[in-house]
Simulated scan of single mutants.
Amino acid sequence: MSKPVLLAVAHGSKHPEARETVSQLARQVTRLAPVLDVQVAYVQDSEPSLAAGLAAAGTSVVIVPLLLSTGYHLTTHIADAASAAGVAVAPPLGPDQLLVTALAGRLAETGVPAGTPVVLAAAGSADPLAAADVRRQADLLAELLDVPVVAAFATAGTPTVDEAVAELNVRTGGPVAVATYLLAPGRFHERLRKTAATWVTRPLGGHPAVAGLVIDRYRVAAASARVTAATR
């Protein structure tokens, strides 16, 4: 009997390390949940495409978006493809307490002292719901760290990361850390490393808490799909 498929769908990137980060995350999920057949597909810029991934996955499949917030790729590209294929889609990974664990872990490994104010730096989106997701994640991180945490964006959205770093520096009179709210390396992370922050953390993709979160999202979506099927 074939295993049920967890189709992890990432944004995609031309950056050489981004694909390896996604593959590493998929391997972590496989180790934690060997009963699943973990496969990977991409919305753009990488192969296999979402369409190809769905075609190869068969019928017993749940899509888990490797996206940290809602947005156009999830509500349009992924949702439309899933609807056409008749498969379930999990919510985005964030906001979530397990991402707080991953973010705090990245800050600790970077050597950020306790009490340092933090900018939670996301890629950005024109979707206001995506920005709200990031701000909620910033609030969750602030609750754990008990320091000011400001959500900021590398592209669309305000404040920009540079603006948030400058504002926190003036407000607190001390150094500021940037907590990278990205799954994989790429041009956005390279941009963050050029800010005036004293510390900039690595992306989240290789952290064990993220792999656990992917499995949680799969289980909830799969259970919901079974309930829906049973009531038809």
Results as ranks from 00 to 15, higher is better:
A85Q: 12
D80W: 09
R27W: 08
A8T: 02
G173Q: 05
Y42N: 10
R193A: 14
A102S: 00
E167I: 00
E20M: 13
T198M: 13
V149K: 06
A197N: 05
R187L: 14
D37V: 01
V176N: 00
T155G: 12
L25R: 03
A82L: 09
H207L: 02
R217C: 04
T110H: 00
P128L: 08
T172K: 05
T116I: 07
D37Q: 09
D45R: 15
G58I: 04
F153P: 00
L145A: 07
G174T: 12
A126V: 11
A8Q: 05
P48E: 11
A196Q: 14
A8K: 04
V227F: 14
H73P: 03
A55P: 07
A230K: 09
S69A: 15
A184R: 00
R136Y: 07
G186V: 04
V147T: 10
P48N: 12
R232M: 11
I215P: 02
G86S: 07
E143R: 13
G186P: 07
G111N: 11
L36T: 02
A104P: 01
L168P: 01
A184F: 07
G58F: 05
V9C: 06
A56Q: 14
L107H: 00
T76Y: 13
L129H: 15
A130S: 15
A197T: 02
D127C: 10
S69T: 14
L99R: 02
Y72K: 06
L66I: 01
V5T: 13
L120D: 05
A152S: 06
G212Y: 03
A151R: 04
V40Y: 09
T198N: 05
L144C: 03
A82F: 10
A57K: 10
R232C: 11
A126I: 08
T101N: 03
H189M: 06
G173E: 05
L129E: 15
E20Q: 15
L141T: 01
T101R: 04
G157T: 09
V29N: 02
P185A: 11
L50C: 09
K14V: 11
E167P: 00
V43R: 06
V220S: 10
A82R: 09
A179C: 03
T231G: 10
I78T: 01
Q28V: 01
A179L: 03
A164F: 04
I78W: 01
S125D: 12
T116D: 05
H11V: 04
W199M: 07
V112K: 02
N169Q: 15
A156C: 02
S2L: 12
V149W: 06
G12P: 09
V61F: 11
V62M: 06
L183F: 05
V100Q: 00
V150P: 00
D127F: 08
G111E: 11
A196T: 13
A177P: 00
L192R: 10
G58Y: 08
G53L: 12
L204D: 01
D45G: 01
H73Y: 12
V118H: 00
A230M: 12
L183I: 01
D127S: 12
E143K: 10
T198S: 15
T30P: 02
Q39W: 07
G71D: 07
L36E: 02
G205T: 08
H73C: 07
E167M: 12
Q137M: 11
V178M: 02
D146L: 11
